[in-house]
């Protein structure tokens, strides 16, 4: 067996899952620490949800193992695992009241004082007074919080969240991001959540695993994943892909390779402006200007080949100023420490 640290809430070892001839998960190894807020980020079909479902016990792996708190649970049924899930569609029981939904897990496990515990859980998600309602009478955000309370009231070792905010509108989603994080800090339970929204993953989690085609491309803190992407895929999926490669990299950076520079690190200068020694720069033509309220995105076709996107805050400029820049000649400059070579 593998030696494992006792403080790992979840460990995945060589996890694989095939559906017929399709390999949804193609060998995943992960260790998630106790109390961590961990995100599995990736596009749809990247295998992240399948991994979550194997941890919950809804799917059984074709190969590999799942350990919870060091204990092998690979072949155990969902009801034998110390995890609870917040489902993407919330999966609230429509024929039960909010209170009955939250009490369900406690009732099944014959835990005493379940009414008090359920009410407490509802209070912690700010739903006090709603306990008699049916799920059908709640808004999307309220349903989401019932699902959260129903799972958390069982005090699982790990809480699994499957695209928990996917069904909410933008404003509510941003609110819930902050709230989820606060709740996690309060209860101290390991949160493992699946999302395709890179912003959500970056803002909420302690660590992120970026999934692509059934594999983990990179695991790291949000800043590591964002500033030092391990692959071209990660650079493109987390944030805007801004790559200099091939001949352009020889001309601009001075050596061959693939380099990632984040759009907000680029400064937009006049073509003839001088740049200090610790910076690299490249000239080009603005081919597109996208005004987005607080900031503007400039798409610049480089003379050396390729294109870069520069994000500039609209601190001094208005939409009239920036839109007029389409077609003009510019120089993009950035500090060398912000260019990151992708292996």
């Amino acid at each position: 067996m593998f030696p494992f640290m006792p403080d790992h809430a979840v460990s995945l070892r060589g996890l694989r899952k095939s559906f017929g001839s399709v390999e949804a998960v193609a060998g995943v190894d992960l260790d998630i620490a106790d109390g961590e807020f961990f995100a599995m980020l990736g596009p749809s079909g990247s295998g992240k949800t399948t991994v979550l479902r194997m941890i919950a016990g809804f799917e059984s792996p074709t190969e590999g193992s799942v350990l919870l708190g060091g204990r092998e649970v690979t072949r155990l049924a969902p009801f034998e695992r110390d995890v609870n899930t917040v489902f993407q569609d919330y999966a609230l029981f429509p024929h039960m009241s909010v209170l009955e939904n939250v009490e369900y897990g406690l009732r099944v496990k014959k835990i005493p004082k379940r009414r008090e515990k359920a009410l407490e859980a509802l209070e912690s998600v700010r739903l006090a007074g709603m306990e008699k309602r049916r799920p059908g009478q709640l808004s999307g955000g309220q349903r989401q919080r019932v699902a959260l309370a129903r799972a958390l009231v069982n005090r699982p070792r790990v809480l699994l969240l499957d695209e928990p905010l996917g069904a909410l509108d933008l404003k509510l989603r941003e609110e819930m991001q902050v709230e989820l994080k606060a709740i996690q800090r309060e209860v101290g339970i390991t949160f493992l959540f699946v999302t395709h929204d890179q912003e959500e993953a970056l803002t909420m989690s302690d660590r992120v695993a970026v999934f692509n085609q059934g594999r983990v491309e990179q695991v790291g803190s949000p800043s590591e994943v964002y500033e030092r992407p391990a692959s071209v895929f990660v650079a493109g999926f987390v944030g805007t892909s801004n790559l200099i490669s091939g001949e352009a990299s020889t001309a601009v950076i001075g050596r061959e390779g693939t380099f990632s520079i984040r759009p907000e690190k680029l400064r937009l200068l006049g073509e003839a402006e001088e740049v200090p020694d610790d910076q690299h720069s490249a000239t080009g033509t603005v081919s597109e200007v996208v005004y987005a309220g607080p900031a503007t995105r400039f798409v610049v076709d480089l003379d050396a080949g390729g294109r870069l996107i520069a994000l500039q805050q609209n601190q001094q400029t208005s939409s009239m100023d920036v839109l007029g820049l389409r077609g003009s000649r510019v120089r993009l400059a950035w500090q060398r420490r912000h260019e990151f070579e992708i292996a």
């Binding site: 016990g57 969902p78 009801f79 609870n84 489902f87 993407q88 029981f93 799972a151």
Partner: peptide, 12 residues
């Protein structure tokens, strides 16, 4: 997902 939720919450 309702069946899975029940199992997830400990129901056989």
């Amino acid at each position: 997902s309702l069946l899975e939720a029940a199992g997830d919450l400990g129901a056989r």
